[in-house]
Amino acid sequence: MQGLLDPHQLKHLTITLRQALGPKQTEPGQDLLALFLTAKEVEGCSSKTIAYYEATLRHMNTALAKPYTQVESDNLRRYLNDYEVKRGSSKVTIDNIRRIMSSFFSWLEDEDYIVKSPVRRIRRVKTAQVTKEVLSDEELEVLRDACESKRDLAIVDLLASTGMRIGELVRLDRKDVNLHERECLVMGKGNKQRPVYFDARAKLHLTEYLSSRADKSPALFVALDSSARRITVGSIELRLRDLGRSAGINRVHPHKFRRTLATHAIDKGMPIEQVQKLLGHAKIDTTMYYAMVNQSNVKASHRKYLE
């Protein structure tokens, strides 16, 4: 019909046919959630993301106690309101749930299991923009001084100079690191590889750490005992928290290094598009959320460009 109808007429015809024929009938015992999760897996979502989707949607389904294809907008509004009140959840958490529901019901609509997603009428939840803490240059130096092992010092330097995610760090192998070029190849979200770069100090401390090891493990970072087991996310989080306490620095965690790098890069004039590439963000909005520009730099720019 494309040769006979213009785009507006084609869209109207599609809507009319969907209304006339109705949504696709589900087969007995068909698990729409399982089909949706399979689709997300094919799209490249991580196992952690898929597990979060599943837990969120199963909780919603249990609370509503009705088939997905019969859920209405009012049901979801009531569910979100009850969830926030009973659990004391933040607006950010509620909007995350809304986004997951939107993804699921939009998929049901695209696959013709429902005529229209009930989340279409539920607007984005407004959240307060809170400026989160970053590490100052002085705090980074204090953290380095608090490190008692070559491994911990190399981890702090690598996180500080690359801004990589903690999950990317623990998956690194020795072969992924090019010490000469001061770069390494990380596997980011959605199984997407990207290069990240580290400074001369990180190269020096990483070289010293690797030279001190006698094991044959391919992992870049391993446990401090003789097992040579690959280090875990939990063990790094715990170690950084302990380093922060001993250094007298509030709330030291892996993500704080990432936010610090983004903020410092923006403050020093790096184009936001390059910061986006460096951090491996799919959307530039995410980069802007991470990078809270220093107010003193805004004042200086105002005087430079507007006075």
Rank of each mutant, 00 (worst) to 15 (best):
K48L: 12
E141S: 11
Y79M: 03
G167N: 13
G244W: 05
G248N: 09
K277T: 05
N250L: 13
L17E: 04
N81V: 13
I94R: 10
M187F: 02
R123I: 07
A202G: 01
G248W: 03
K175S: 13
G3R: 04
Q295T: 13
P218A: 10
L279M: 09
E237W: 12
A160G: 05
D173W: 03
D112I: 06
V134D: 02
E208Y: 05
R174Q: 15
S136L: 01
T56Y: 03
D242T: 14
L64H: 10
E168L: 01
T62M: 05
G3E: 00
E43R: 11
A20G: 12
F198I: 08
S217Y: 02
L153R: 01
P195S: 00
Q25E: 13
S235Y: 04
K304P: 08
A214P: 01
K299S: 09
Q19H: 15
M60R: 03
D95N: 15
R121G: 08
A219V: 09
V85D: 04
I231K: 07
E133S: 15
A154R: 02
M60H: 11
V115P: 02
T127W: 11
L224I: 09
V233F: 05
E141D: 14
T62R: 13
L76R: 05
I122A: 03
R120I: 11
V233Q: 11
A219Y: 12
W107T: 03
V92T: 14
E139Q: 15
D157A: 12
V233I: 15
K150I: 02
L238V: 01
N191Q: 12
Y53V: 05
G190R: 10
H180A: 10
L10C: 11
Q295G: 06
V156N: 06
R120A: 13
T26S: 14
Q129L: 07
Q129T: 11
F105V: 04
Y209F: 03
